[in-house]
Design a protein around this nucleic acid. Structure first.
Lengths: 268, 268
DNA sequence: AAAATTTGTATTTTAAAAAATACAGGATGC
DNA sequence: GCATCCTGTATTTTTTAAAATACAAATTTT
């Protein structure tokens, strides 16, 4: 009962589909490390494509370091020693963590300008028609590897209270609070998006790769929007984590997020 | 220097890539409803493809009912007749919410079996070699629309303490606690993945679409793994939210997640 | 040692996707 | 009205992906 498809969506190359499928099966554990995959001929048959196509998919998997091929023997799933997630952030204490990360990672400013806000930004920050925003696009790197692509929007009137240099040395929130802005609360939303040509290039990945998307809006005590942040993360280099404890007894037994004291104290 | 890509991944049709990208941007609000998209020629230029290719991508968007084309005028994003994000879950209080959602949404069991655990499951639950698990794949629907694809793994010895019928009527945790299992804590990880042929079909979306991925492992007081959950969500129908408050004063000023009943469902 | 199976490589053919191009016709603004 | 900017449509050419083969070389099995 698909709602879709008065016109069918372009389906895209078979090699790629099979590559994604096999990758998924390997990462999902359907094919255990050390285990041999079905032979190329067998794969070609079960997927209804030619061996050449299977071959191209496997080539890509080799390129990803997921499998190893041995002539005459077969194709084997590699031990996943290669790709642990580098960075993990606790979702509940995400804000202070991100600030700490600022000390431990490098940032590169990709663009900085005052522009007309995109509609969703304008709406989220409740801007007046014609009001402009400062837009900064940053790339965050850990051990020379990009893992995060950040775009921030701050209303012009607020952004003007500090300089680009201030921003480089001091967290935004410190700057704002010194200027008398009363930060009150923030709303965060996590989603998933595909890498666009721009973000793919910045994050050193391929167009169409899945990225974690985090949207954050910060408000002051009057409920006015102060900052709109759109962050994109490479899932193989960054993940959001949350630990929950089962607390209470009887009918009141429920889950509660763990707020690590360390993270809280480091908060600024 | 990239770890990846000794051989590049097959990129799959350009038309399809652009279709997915534009769809993502429209649903993400980059192009507001009622607003005109850039002209076909402009799009062709910015994406580095021919107009024909852009055209095929747009054809698919029309087929999905996302945009409307008017000869001579332009291509306009349609008013989302029925496409705001349907469900929102507060991340910090996600667990009880999911349980409540179980009452308010429909579930369809796609498969139920006792199988050998995939390596990541075996590792996360710290299973002994040869130990089997109960695997259940469920599809969760709200107003007849699938928004979540769930795969749960429970060690066989634990799973046997309840029946399939029990599971249908009572939350898993209740069942387990009645049976003397002492649930202690859980670890959750959020990431992003691409839809595979199977998940795409189940979630009524296209292969290669971006999905929110949530992995959860539940432990008992001894630190033994009890349940491994892998959940996939359509980002246009489900999102994770978290509200933070800025509390304390002076050097102790920091962020704190809002736990009180901020947990909301849908709204719209 | 021989046979069978598997990956590696190359060539040719076929099919599909993308590009390049041209022009018709609706919509809009001056 | 007229210029301009847009989508609609059609044709041709180029490029790319996939398929169909064939055979060599490495490995395992018998």
């Amino acid at each position: 009962m698909t709602v879709h498809n008065g016109a069918t969506a372009p389906e895209g190359g078979k090699a790629r589909r099979i590559y994604l499928l096999l990758r998924d099966e390997i990462m999902g554990g359907t094919h255990a490390p050390g285990q041999a995959l079905p032979g190329e001929l067998k794969l070609a048959e079960t997927h209804g494509v030619s061996r050449v196509t299977i071959r191209r998919a496997l080539d890509a998997l080799v390129g990803d370091g997921l499998v190893e091929r041995r002539a005459g023997s077969g194709t084997v799933v590699r031990q996943p020693s290669s790709t642990p997630v580098q960075l993990k952030a606790d979702f509940a204490t995400l804000m202070p963590q991100l600030q700490r990360m600022a000390d431990e990672t490098t940032a590169r400013l990709l663009s900085f300008a005052y522009v007309a806000p995109p509609p969703p930004v304008s709406e989220a920050l409740n801007l007046q028609a014609g009001e402009r925003v400062q837009r900064a696009v940053r790339l965050r790197l850990a051990s020379d590897k990009a893992f995060s692509h950040l775009t921030t929007y701050v209303p012009e009137r607020i952004a003007q209270s500090y300089s680009e240099a201030d921003l480089a040395s001091t967290p935004l929130f410190r700057l704002l609070e010194r200027r008398g802005v009363h930060i009150d609360h923030a709303r965060q939303t996590v989603s998933a998006v595909l890498a666009t040509p721009e973000t793919a290039e910045a994050l050193e990945t391929t167009v169409g790769a899945a990225l974690i998307s985090l949207m954050r809006v910060v408000y002051d005590t009057d409920g006015a929007g102060i900052e709109y942040l759109s962050a994109l993360y490479r899932p193989d280099r960054f993940q959001l984590e949350l630990t929950l404890n089962r607390v209470g007894g009887g009918d009141d037994r429920h889950w509660e997020p763990v707020l690590t004291g360390a993270a809280q104290r480091a908060a600024q």
